[in-house]
Design a protein around this nucleic acid. Sequence first.
DNA 1: AAGCAGGACAACCGCAACAAG
DNA 2: GCTTGTTGCGGTTGTCCTGCT
Length: 276
Amino acid sequence: MGRSPCCEKAHTNKGAWTKEEDQRLIAHINQHGEGCWRSLPKAAGLLRCGKSCRLRWINYLRPDLKRGNFTDEEDELIIKLHELLGNKWSLIAGRLPGRTDNEIKNYWNTHIKRKLLARGLDPLRTARSMPPPPSPATTTSRRRLQLLARRNKRPQQLQRRRRVPRRHRPQPVHKPAVVVVPAVFPAAAAARSRGETRRSDGELHLPPPLLGDEGEDMPVLEPPRAARRRRVQLRRLVGLFLLLAAAGDGELASVHIRQCIVVNSVKHREIQRFSD
DNA sequence: AAGCAGGACAACCGCAACAAG
DNA sequence: GCTTGTTGCGGTTGTCCTGCT
């Protein structure tokens, strides 16, 4: 069995978001918190699919996003993490507060690749090898070839290629909407969902212990989805820590383990075991 | 000034992973 | 353990912008 389409494509807008759509999305999330993306467009009065809303929020509208150019430190960290993790953009983004995976991915493809090539490094393997610079014939990027090919096409062929869904399934039976506990401070909630908080002075603060797991104190009732996100986050954090540790990167691993531990203090023993 | 090439980045897509029932 | 719905990820594409000829 496959999955149902995420939205009724015939009744959804595509392309760039308008200011009004942004405002509607922001207002809705400020009021109801993140989550339940599938039902969000209808609830917020948006003619967008849930995925589109999620992407717009995560990559552009989230209040805690860091805007502006990447610093040299961020550059180096991205290169280092990419060497360890490959194209695991979400994991890399997890180490760069305020940056999104999409942003980092774009940045990698547009800036860092070139930077590494200029240094005589292979962007695919970063600093591990230094092959000779590519010949003029091979410097033509695939992207450039694509663009050239596209420019040779007729206008109607320039329309975005519609990928036909592999499976068509009947619409799912409507289920009652999941009750989402509104986030009182959406920005902080979003940051906490990624396991981090940030003070106005910009200093990164480690988040409170994971709520809702294994009998921890529960000052606030956490919605199931948030709890789930935290569990996913924890798995990723542990996974990244293991990679860093395996790569022998003590500095990054030590920073990382602190975050692992505070994201979910219950797992302290488990993580400690890895570090031993 | 006009047209073109390429850079930059927002947005889309399919799919895998995951959780809930 | 299986089915089904949701979420998030990574690759790809579209479009705007800028600089060059």
